[in-house]
């Protein structure tokens, strides 16, 4: 087992255990912190696969912006006590069983699929230079549409979040 595989297994164990922590912890704030740890593990996987740009974007956008937004909302609503009423045991069991069955079915379907190897050679397709070239030549129209999407999302969030007069909001 070389260093590459060691890092792979460490990041995998960290990602899965933190993801379990997200759904099992009672306190919403610790759920958010577990989710941030999961995103860091996924970013580690990106670096392992030579996608450095996406690793940085994942940390900045997900762990930096989105999770802070979640944390703000949880603290604004004063939910950081574990007062959440739980679903009854039967519904929880049904959720776990159906998730587990999905896992098993896809696992069985993929077990005998192609066994291509990911080479551990360094490629430079994940660097900003090459991604930028692809983004601004092949995918320039979706990029511009994304800016319109952001504008409409921003306006929508402001309109929804505004304290409307009674009866209009």
């Amino acid at each position: 087992m070389n260093a590459y595989e060691l890092i792979f297994w460490l990041l995998t164990v960290m990602a899965i255990s933190c993801a379990l922590g997200v759904i099992l912890s009672r306190n919403p704030v610790s759920s958010v912190l577990f989710l941030i740890a999961t995103f860091f593990a996924v970013s580690g996987h990106y670096i392992l696969m030579n996608a450095q740009f996406l690793a940085i974007v994942n940390i900045i956008v997900y762990a930096g912006a989105i999770m802070v937004l979640f944390l703000f909302v949880i603290m604004l609503m004063n939910l950081n006590a574990d007062t959440e009423p739980q679903k009854n045991r039967l519904v929880q069991l049904a959720g776990v069983v159906s998730g587990g069955i999905l896992f098993l079915v896809i696992l069985a379907a993929l077990k005998s699929s192609t066994n291509n190897m990911l080479e551990q050679t360094a490629t430079d397709i994940g660097l900003i230079k090459n991604l930028g070239k692809t983004l601004f030549t092949q995918f320039v129209l979706p990029f511009e549409i994304a800016s319109v999407l952001f504008l409409s999302a921003m306006i929508g969030a402001v309109v929804l979040g505004k304290k409307g007069e009674e009866g209009t909001a």
């Binding site: 899965i16 993801a19 939910l79 959440e84 009423p85 679903k87 776990v96 159906s98 998730g99 587990g100």
Partner: peptide, 18 residues
């Protein structure tokens, strides 16, 4: 595995933010 854990969490929890 991560996807299935996400589905389990969606089905198990009652908090909309979770």
């Amino acid at each position: 595995a991560l996807f299935s854990i996400g589905i389990m969490g969606t089905l198990m929890r009652r908090n909309a933010i979770i």
